[in-house]
């Protein structure tokens, strides 16, 4: 048998290992929280510095923040509609920014320099707990949006256009969070794995195209998640014209 290059000490793969913290008798994944705090800290720092002095003639960081705001507003307005988008803009925006910064942070920051006793730091969105949490928040959000705007008329949505749709619409309520969470989780984890495996086999140059592709995928995934969340909310608050 040929000696496989698996014994090379250049890089190591650790998948499915977690740094467990214990809160009472609950277990949580420490590495996810550590990296999510970095992400949240970066976001808060950016926002705090950028909005300290807002002026009518924007300068410096304010330009960038206004560009972001405009981008998120367009996304929310397009999917949710003119009437209700204002209520959901912060939620959609936070989802987009958190996922985007998580993904890019996971791809760009040299996490490996910090070694943990178990598991490794990376994008918080490469952990299924994070993506499921986000997806369930989206589910809650669109139920809340529909019920608060239309009351029990929200459930008319299940029989439109015909009552035959009821089972499908009910199944949809389960598949929506499932597909949201697994799409994000799978893409980010797969990207990290591809880069890790390539770096493991050929540590120089070769992983670079995969890394670039990973950056692209990461951005697209953030956009998809936020857009779909907005679309689901828009669907829930949509008034069908009889």
């Amino acid at each position: 048998m040929l000696p496989l290059p698996l014994a090379l000490p250049l890089a190591e793969l650790e998948v499915g290992q977690h740094l467990y913290w214990h809160l009472g008798n609950l277990k949580i994944h420490g590495q996810v929280f550590l990296s999510s705090w970095v992400v949240i800290g970066a976001l808060l720092a950016l926002v705090f510095v950028g909005t300290r002095k807002l002026e009518r003639d924007p300068r410096g960081l304010q330009n960038f923040l206004e560009f972001l705001w405009d981008y998120i507003r367009d996304m929310a307005r397009e999917q949710i509609g003119e009437k209700a988008y204002r209520d959901w803009l912060p939620f959609i925006g936070t989802l987009f920014l958190f996922i985007f910064v998580s993904n890019w942070g996971g791809a760009l920051l040299p996490w490996k320099l910090i070694s943990l006793p178990h598991g490794e730091l990376g994008a918080p969105t490469a952990d299924i707990n994070t993506t499921v949490a986000l997806a369930l928040l989206v589910s809650l959000a669109y139920f809340y949006a529909g019920l608060s705007r239309k009351g029990f008329r929200y459930f008319e949505y299940y029989v439109e256009p015909t009552p035959i749709m009821v089972p499908f619409k009910i199944v949809e309520d389960f598949t929506k969070p499932l597909s949201l969470s697994f799409r994000l989780f799978g893409n980010i984890l797969a990207d990290e794995l591809v880069v890790a495996v390539l770096a493991f086999l050929v540590p120089l140059v070769v992983p670079l195209p995969a890394m670039l592709l990973g950056l692209f995928t990461s951005a697209i995934q953030a956009l998809i998640f936020a857009t779909l969340a907005a679309y689901y909310i828009g669907e829930a608050v949509h008034e069908s014209h009889h």
């Binding site: 998948v15 499915g16 977690h18 809160l23 609950l26 277990k27 949580i28 994944h29 996810v32 929280f33 999510s36 949240i40 976001l43 808060l44 926002v47 912060p90 939620f91 925006g93 936070t94 989802l95 920014l97 958190f98 918080p124 952990d127 299924i128 707990n129 994070t130 499921v132 949490a133 986000l134 369930l136 928040l137 984890l189």
Partner: peptide, 22 residues
């Protein structure tokens, strides 16, 4: 990979807080 635990609700709370702060 599919180890769901208390990370999930805590992360959800974290994101909600982040939404409020942002």
């Amino acid at each position: 990979l599919f180890d769901l635990d208390a990370t999930l609700p805590l992360m959800a709370v974290q994101v909600v807080l982040l939404t409020l702060i942002l």
